[in-house]
Design a protein around this nucleic acid. Structure first.
Lengths: 203, 203, 203, 203
DNA sequence: AATGAATGAGGATTCATTCAT
DNA sequence: AATGAATGAATCCTCATTCAT
């Protein structure tokens, strides 16, 4: 499987891919029918089946694409850096970037009911999340060792809190129908918050 | 509509209610069929329709029940108290309590794909969440005024972070198949974390 | 079976009877559900079943009631009379009277798809119609013998034409949403028409 | 929408069309289920839905087909002609022809409970009938002007009487289970009747 | 690479009807 | 005389999927 060039709209496979992403993100996997996707793309159902084994495979590839993108982005940001705070800022910013660049996938992710996913896909997702969790934790531990952030904080919890706060904001913005899932100001506020909480700590 | 006495298992209506909650939480609203619910309860489909107008109404009442419970719990904890830290601790504990007392509803909530809910139900849910958000924010602002927590933190973000961290933990525990959605230890770690971050701040 | 006193509205049985007549006439037998009837009357379904064996019986009694009324009316008008034209006029008027007095039953009759009626009921209906046809024919034959109407007309066709014209008018009025199924003027026009056609004939 | 070639029995769409016509005419729209139609044709339910949006659309197309046929027949007969009596005869004959050529549709029409039809379809039907009524009336008026038929007759009533007599005969024949809905002899009798009533009038 | 036609299984919902009370 | 609760069978319709072309 090769990830489609998401901008090559002339490719039928990609058009199906994108249409599915948008529909799934708006109505949820189960509420979207093959027919709807095909109508949106303007092809017959057998055409979809020519490119994707079945509906579940389509979903799986969609998720895998999201993972691969987010993994790629993360990998770069996780490389050892001199200034942890800048690295942290970049990490926070990355989420915002992703939300801005692939809003459908972002909504898609949050809209996705992870507990109802087919087992195999779910496992893949959990694996991806655990990998990200582990990598982030390593980063935090290093920063605590070097004294850049409060060393008394439990790293796992730090992880949850940082990601959780971001996700909560995103959900909130989606729910209250903000146009931008995460604006520049949102990112700044977030950074200020963690500056107070974990960077600027009493020794 | 009156909320069913959730413990009166002899009542057919309640049995349908509970079965639906469990099934929805495990497989998601769309993946659960009326037939499945009825089979679980051991009644015919028309019986379900005798008690609930349709599938959507059943879902709506389920959600409303959850809201009412969580609202009731929150209301008590939001009453003015002398010691903010204890109040905060209780709030954190409440979530754990809810998760322990109504695990199905907790999973149900997290499993629920809010973006695919029928508009009317979604509105109700958003309203409930916004109310909780507002009330919590008031509490934080008061605590900042009295100097109990770091006054430099943005209250809205504080809200997102506190809730987000908890939710992230819960999701993590669900995903990694922890038996307890939020154990006593989890609560303790959480409290320690916020003690460091917002209570024990440099003046 | 005794025909209900159609004006005694305090009697539950009658109320069901009338409600059914109205609903059947508006929506057709098959499109009306027992529930609808009961809701209109304000009783539970078992109550309906207390009075009527089943839906088909209810329909049968409704039709039988209509037959009995129309038979009663006809019988009086068919009695030997001195002036045939007056008798004919009265017959025409009777249809108008019936339409005015029991509009629901009139609509009910025309709305009734006779070919889809249960066999037994249909037979009863056909029998009634054939009896009326025979009786009318006798009347026409007598009038032809006495020279009151054109003796060259085929009596059976005379029958069809007289009834057909009236029915066609009624259907037309129903279709074009006239308030009165057959107004006084309609009756007058009808009479003028037959005066020209069958009474005032060239010897 | 294009009307199916009603004789091309190899076409699935047409086979569904014809089966529906026959079933509807025998049992009425509401009493016929999609399943029955499909079983008669020997296809699965989705096949029917592939060709017809839903049950109501199927009915609508059936009615539209009938209208189009009857309209086509009428149009030819309404063209200005030298001899009105021959034209009238042809009109009467047309009904008989229709009844002979499309017996199912004839029964279908009479069996159809017009008051219970979906609003949109009913409107279409009323429109068609009103058009026919208007056109016929024009014809009668012209014949009265030229003195071919009794000018003292009310044209609208003439219309009702002519159509009504025919319909009444048809219904009678259907009810009494005549094999032929309108035999050659029936037509002849009808013509003789109107000869006496409207053509051969006292000046 | 794409399609028109077809399918079996299952979806939610409503029906007429009947108990026990 | 009336009802609340329950039912089996049927309703229309949509689903994901596949064949032959």
């Amino acid at each position: 499987m090769s990830f489609p060039d998401i901008n090559n709209e002339s490719d039928t496979r990609t058009r199906i891919f994108l249409a599915a992403a948008e529909l799934f993100s708006n109505y949820g996997y189960n509420r979207v029918s093959i027919r709807q996707i095909c109508e949106k793309v303007g092809v017959g159902k057998p055409t979809l089946y020519y490119y994707f084994q079945d509906k579940e495979t389509l979903l799986a590839e969609l998720l895998r694409f999201s993972f691969s993108v987010s993994r790629e982005m993360l990998r770069k940001l996780l490389e050892p850096a001199a200034n942890f705070r800048e690295q942290f800022k970049a990490l926070v910013g990355m989420r915002a970037l992703f939300a801005r660049k692939y809003p459908h996938f972002m909504r898609f992710f949050f809209g996705m009911n992870i507990f109802t996913l087919p087992e195999s896909i779910r496992e893949e997702m959990v694996e991806h999340l655990q990998w990200a969790h582990r990598e982030l934790e390593k980063l935090f531990v290093a920063a605590q060792r070097s004294g850049e952030i409060n060393p008394r904080l439990n790293p796992a919890l730090l992880n949850h809190a940082v990601l959780g706060a971001m996700n909560q904001m995103l959900i909130w913005n989606i729910l209250t129908d903000r146009k931008q899932l995460m604006s520049g100001n949102d990112g700044r506020l977030l950074m200020e918050f963690w500056d107070e909480c974990i960077f600027n700590y009493p020794h």
